[in-house]
């Protein structure tokens, strides 16, 4: 039953509907998009009793103000934007019930960047090319292909459930110093030995030129062996482009599908969520890891999520 669940009183900076992304259309230039921090999205869904891949609201820096139009369980995970119900602070990483007429709002950004609002019963927006994710540059998916605006009404299939919380070891800590693991390549030959060394040994800083498409970093110049350009090829999530400036760009959820800058490495999948929560100014170091280890880590994390999910059923 399609029921109105929230009315948007204030939009926030860029509140969008996101699920785990849109696959199968990269060859037609369609970015996978999806939640920047897929860990928080899935944890939120777990807490409210949804399928892991259900869509939630993603809100960076400044959260929205929402009025509940129905009693519903919600969970707020990810960045701490000081969530409040009727002005009273409420905890993150916990399912809570918001009652019809109550107001969910956010305050100061304390930790992380993006908060995820998972709603029991999910968000009823159409699947566009198999996904509910908003593709901002493509102007489709999610809520009418755009970020939420004042006056929008979100629909769903709301229900309430007994409150649930997470064990503390499952709650990530966001810091202003981050080491992310990378698989080096594929355009290794485009860099000098010194350039590669700089990349793996120096510290970089996330700039404010960072969004859903990518994080622009600044730091010691990574030296190319010749030109910075390549014949355009396909880009993976976490790919690290280095244009002629020698300053790396990490490609995030809404990255372009193809690109013409040489790439020095790829951030491994399990480290993307932490990077998604890294504020501008965060210091980043890159550490090389083997493909085997990276895949083991990814498989472990997915298996842990799955067994948690089974426990809650």
């Amino acid at each position: 039953m399609r029921t109105p669940i929230f009315k948007v009183m204030k939009s926030g900076l860029q509140t969008t509907v996101q699920d785990l992304g849109r696959y199968g259309f990269r060859e037609f230039g369609v970015s996978p998009s999806g939640a920047m921090d897929s860990y928080s999205l899935q944890m939120g869904n777990l807490l409210v009793g949804n399928d892991l891949g259900e869509a939630a609201l993603e809100a960076p820096f400044i959260g929205p103000v929402l009025m509940a139009l129905h009693d519903v369980s919600i969970a707020i995970c990810g960045g701490n934007l000081t969530p409040k119900i009727n002005g009273q602070e409420v905890p993150l990483w916990k399912s809570i019930v918001i009652k019809k007429g109550q107001i969910l709002s956010f305050g100061e950004l304390k930790e992380g960047v993006r908060t995820y609002i998972s709603i029991a019963g999910g968000i009823d927006v159409p699947f566009v090319l198999n996904s509910k994710s908003t593709y901002i540059t493509g102007k489709f998916g999610g809520f009418e292909g755009r970020a939420l605006k004042e006056g929008d009404i979100l629909f769903g299939n709301p229900f309430t459930r007994r409150n649930r919380f997470l064990q503390t070891q499952l709650i990530p800590k966001y810091t202003n110093k981050l080491t992310v693991r990378v698989i080096v390549g594929p355009h290794t030959r485009k860099f000098t030995t010194a350039g590669l060394k700089t990349f793996l040994n120096e510290e970089y800083s996330i700039t404010s030129q960072s969004n859903r498409m990518g994080h622009q970093l600044t730091g010691p110049k990574i030296e190319h062996s010749s030109t910075a350009d390549i014949i355009s090829d396909a880009i993976p999530l976490g790919g690290i482009q280095v244009p002629a400036s020698g300053q790396p760009i990490i490609l995030m959820a809404e990255h372009q599908t193809t690109g013409g800058y040489s790439r020095i490495g790829t951030v491994i999948s399990v480290d993307i969520p932490l990077l998604a929560q890294a504020q501008p100014g965060t210091k980043v170091r890159f550490k090389e890891i083997s493909l085997q280890n990276a895949q083991d880590l990814l498989i472990d994390s997915r298996n842990r999520l799955k067994s948690l999910y089974r426990l809650t059923r």
């Binding site: 698989i183 594929p186 976490g238 493909l291």
Partner: peptide, 12 residues
């Protein structure tokens, strides 16, 4: 043939 991160392979 090279890996592109942990979830992609590129054949040039």
């Amino acid at each position: 043939i090279v890996p592109l991160g942990d979830s992609a392979i590129s054949i040039s």
